[in-house]
């Protein structure tokens, strides 16, 4: 494992910790898209079916369990926790995420590395992850004002994607048979979605101002 991959995993983990911290500390999930969070649950469950069949390392197994557990915990809080669910901005979270699930699954049936149950679900999870942030980004755009923790959550998620691209570039040059065009292309698409957000994030950081997205 190279340093970029590790940095990517850690920023992914930090983003989840930031989100859990926001929900627990403020007892509020305002500004957070439940739809994006539900998509992440589907992404992790579909991708980590190999928990039962392949063992790669203790690190991999533990991280997979952490990602599944934390994403379930977030969705549980937003749906079930009495105080938290009252703060959910339902009227701002109207993205039709079923289309993303359906589209990703159809794409996985057409484009996959092998026509097996696990590989179809793996490809599905890769495609779905690429678009899972869209309901959250649309919600940020609609509310305009982004609170600090929500902004940092999206920032760390974007950083995770950027580090994974550096990781692939590194692997491409250091490993003789490194080719995984499904993950790399989807990863590029996914990272591109963050470009706009990053632009405004850095402007607000440079001006030491509150993050605001244009309507």
């Amino acid at each position: 494992m190279n340093i970029f991959r590790f940095a990517g995993d850690m920023t992914h983990l930090i983003s989840i910790v930031v989100l859990l911290l926001k929900i627990y500390a403020t007892k509020s999930c305002s500004g957070i898209s439940l739809k994006t969070q539900e998509l992440y649950v589907i992404v992790f469950l579909a991708r980590y079916l190999d928990l039962f069949t392949d063992f790669i390392s203790v690190y991999n197994t533990v991280m997979k369990l952490v990602f599944i557990g934390s994403s379930l915990a977030i969705v549980w809080c937003m749906r079930m926790h009495r105080a938290v669910k009252r703060t959910y901005d339902k009227e701002l979270d109207t993205f039709r995420h079923y289309f993303l699930v359906l589209g990703s699954f159809v794409l996985a049936l057409l484009l996959h590395e092998k026509f097996t149950f696990q590989e179809i679900f793996w490809a599905f999870s890769i495609y779905l992850e690429a678009v899972a942030i869209l309901p959250q980004l649309v919600m940020l755009q609609r509310s305009g004002n982004v609170d600090n923790l929500t902004g940092q959550y999206v920032f760390f998620l974007g950083a995770y994607r950027a580090f994974y691209i550096l990781n692939w570039i590194y692997r491409f040059f250091t490993e003789p048979h490194f080719s995984r065009w499904i993950a790399c292309l989807s990863g590029l698409v996914q990272t591109a979605f963050y470009a706009d957000f990053f632009y405004y994030y850095f402007i607000s950081w440079k001006n030491n101002a509150k993050l605001q997205l244009p309507a």
Binding site: R47, D50, T53, D54, F55, F67
Partner: peptide
């Protein structure tokens, strides 16, 4: 494992 093919990334 999986026909010699494993996804080693998360």
């Amino acid at each position: 494992p999986n026909g010699g093919h494993m996804h080693d990334e998360l």
